[in-house]
């Protein structure tokens, strides 16, 4: 899967690691991808960062000096009710930690020494849904705006048609059926179907069976 790592540049990363050298070098790499990388040594500093800035994802080492990364995340989630996607990094492949991590619903778990590609991919995978969600919300807004300024009935019918598509993008319906669901006149309906057919978007392939062609949308 080819990931578009550019999406990372919209996000702020909090990186907690007690080994200063490793912290510095990792930060140097992540700086090229993320919007901002906050690299800290202790959980105390991490809390300060979280309070001051918007953090989109946390990368946390399990074994910190005098403390435990899992305890920090637990405190964050259970006591402070701050839910930020988090990745645990550790040299320990101990199942004890793993079980606790699963209980905490940690988003991912990477083993040290860190493979940068793996780290970036992991970051991408975790942050992608957020991007997609934003995207979705944007589209919904677009549609809503369009329907507000054009014939809202037609938008409604299209919504109905798309939501009733099966896996093969086929639609089994009749005018009567649509008219029962949506109060629309038959001529308007026939006109809409003809329009769509002329643009090869909705093709009648059998009686009461239509095929919705996605590719036709792109060629518009």
């Amino acid at each position: 899967m080819n990931r578009n790592l550019n999406i990372l540049n919209q996000f702020n990363i909090l990186y907690i690691e007690d080994d200063k050298s490793l912290l510095k070098h990792t930060k140097d790499i992540l700086d090229d991808f993320a919007k901002e990388v906050y690299a800290v040594n202790t959980s105390k500093e991490a809390f300060e960062i979280i309070n001051c800035y918007t953090i989109d994802i946390i990368i946390c080492d399990i074994l910190l000096e005098n403390e435990n990364g899992i305890d920090f995340l637990k405190d964050l989630k259970e006591n402070k009710k701050i839910f930020i996607p988090s990745i645990l990094a550790t040299a320990h492949t101990d199942t004890k930690y793993l079980l606790e991590a699963i209980k905490l619903k940690i988003d991912h778990y990477i083993v040290k020494p860190i493979n940068v590609k793996e780290l970036l991919n992991t970051l991408h995978d975790i942050l992608l849904p957020q991007i997609q969600e934003k995207e979705l919300r944007k589209n919904i807004n677009v549609i809503k705006t369009i329907s507000a300024i054009t014939d809202s009935k037609q938008v409604e019918i299209i919504k109905y048609m798309i939501s009733n598509l099966d896996e093969k993008n086929q639609l089994f319906t009749s005018y009567l059926e649509i008219m029962q669901k949506i109060s629309v006149s038959k001529p308007t309906l026939i006109k809409l179907f003809k329009d769509l057919a002329s643009k090869k978007i909705l093709n009648k392939i059998a009686h009461k069976t239509y095929f919705f062609d996605e590719d036709a949308l792109n060629s518009l």
Binding site: D19, L22, H25, T26, I29, D32, K112, P113, I114, V116
Partner: peptide, 28 residues
């Protein structure tokens, strides 16, 4: 050894990443 090894590995990988981004400079 684990800690310095991690750091060294990170440094090595950073070259690759920087290179791929075209940001590998002499100072770096």
């Amino acid at each position: 050894w684990r800690q310095p090894l991690s750091s060294i590995l990170m440094i090595v990988q950073s070259f690759q990443v920087k290179m791929s981004l075209g940001k590998l400079t002499q100072e770096y």
